[in-house]
């Protein structure tokens, strides 16, 4: 984990971060030690991994600026930006609702543009600036959209909310919040199954019409 940002606290095994082969072997040994593990399972853990498959696994270096913090990482190329955020960096504010770009729960900003983080590989964003819901407020001071979502109750269960909010901020910045109809169209990439849609529109309109800096 030497090349990791010191702010990142390693918890448990994280083969996603360096020396793939070494980590595998280490874990393999460790696993056989589990007393609770019954016989049939040991077969999987104890047997040597397919050399050919293992050889193909390479970690790729990756630098990202996430919410103003610089990360120097090493990831499997197949790791999506969403899974990197949630599973490796524990930035779980960004949600997985479908994993196929069909719901918008995973919306983040990359270089200021809203995208679905589930449909991009983390390595494709090398060198970019990522903003997630965790990076929207300024310390204790909520972003105006966050305030407006609370005031207008723009959510129920809250699961789509980070994506809605990231999308809403972008919607205003893009200039696509000029009417109720335009907001509804440009917010249609964010599904809210609880159905708080009209309240979301009200929240966006308030911020847009209030002229606050977004």
């Amino acid at each position: 984990m030497a090349d990791q940002n010191p702010d990142q606290h390693p918890t448990g095994p994280k083969p996603g971060h360096n020396g793939a082969r070494r980590t595998f072997l280490k874990q393999s040994t460790a696993l056989t030690a589990f007393a609770l593990t019954p016989g049939p399972v040991l077969k999987a853990a104890g047997s040597a991994w397919d050399e050919k498959v293992a050889a193909a696994i390479e970690q790729v270096p990756l630098r990202l600026d996430i919410n103003g913090k610089k990360y120097k990482l090493s990831v499997e190329p197949r790791t999506t930006l969403l899974d990197l955020l949630r599973e490796q960096l524990h930035l779980t504010g960004t949600k997985k609702g479908c994993d196929y770009g069909q719901c918008g729960a995973c919306t983040v900003h990359v270089d200021g543009q809203r995208i679905n983080s589930c449909l991009t590989l983390a390595v494709m964003q090398d060198g970019k600036k990522v903003t997630t819901i965790e990076g929207l407020a300024e310390g204790e001071k909520l972003h105006p959209i966050q305030e407006a979502f609370i005031k207008h109750d723009g959510f129920q269960c809250g699961y789509c909310t980070p994506g809605q909010i990231m999308s809403a901020v972008a919607c205003i910045r893009e200039g696509h919040a000029n009417s109720e109809g335009e907001i509804r169209e440009y917010m249609s990439g964010n599904i809210c199954r609880c159905g708080a849609y009209p309240n979301i529109v009200a929240a966006i309109q308030e911020v847009k019409n209030g002229g606050q800096k977004v």
């Binding site: 819901i133 965790e134 929207l136 609370i150 005031k151 809250g158 699961y159």
Partner: peptide
């Protein structure tokens, strides 16, 4: 306003 609203809008609500 919801008592857990702040957690939900900041990504702090844990599922």
């Amino acid at each position: 306003n919801r008592v857990d609203g702040r957690l939900k809008v900041t990504g702090g609500a844990r599922y």
